[in-house]
Each structure stands twice: as structure tokens, then as C-alpha cells.
């Protein structure tokens, strides 16, 4: 459940914003991010017309990558 997609903020008007992605624009509410520093150009995650979180640039990763890397480094250091 909870179909949500990332969009970029194109303009802000109070707690409403227009977000866009790949040429599609949608009017969304920023009300749930009122305590976040947020601005035009930021990426947000939209669910049922509401931005529910700011998106950071991370990739999909697992802690195992980090662990494996550390283990490898450990092994190299060892």
C-alpha cells in the first residue's frame, strides 16, 4: 500500500506547491513538511497528493555493503 512517487518542487505558494517529474505536474500539499527547510528544486515523496518526506540523493543500499566494505578494509588492514 501507500503508493508514493518522488517529484521535484517547481513552485511554492503557502503550503501548496506544484511538483513535477518528467513533464507531469501535480499540485501537492507541503503541510506535512512545514517544519522542514524546503525549497524549489528539492525532491519530495508524494503520497495521495501530500509530500510526506524530503528525498536525499542516496542509492538503494543495504548495510551489508558497508559491512562488507568494512570487513574488506579490516582484512586489508589486518
Amino acid at each position: 500500500m501507500c503508493l508514493a512517487i518522488p517529484m521535484q518542487i517547481a513552485s511554492i505558494n503557502g503550503s501548496r506547491a506544484v511538483c513535477s517529474i518528467k513533464g507531469i505536474e501535480r499540485e501537492v500539499s507541503l503541510f506535512l513538511l512545514q517544519d522542514e527547510p524546503i525549497g524549489i528544486g528539492d525532491y519530495v515523496l508524494i503520497h495521495v497528493g501530500y509530500a510526506i518526506q524530503k528525498i536525499s540523493a542516496e542509492e538503494a543500499r543495504s548495510t551489508w555493503e558497508l559491512l562488507d566494505q568494512m570487513l574488506t578494509e579490516d582484512a586489508q588492514h589486518a
Binding site: 513533464g23 507531469i24 505536474e25 501535480r26 501537492v28 497528493g49
Partner: peptide, 13 residues
């Protein structure tokens, strides 16, 4: 669908 302006969506399609 976009022309309906339903769901607050718009596009250039």
C-alpha cells in the same frame, strides 16, 4: 486524463 484536470495533474502530453 490530463486534460480532465482531475487529481491535480497536468502535463504537456
Amino acid at each position: 486524463l490530463l486534460a480532465r484536470e482531475q487529481f491535480g495533474l497536468s502535463g504537456t502530453l
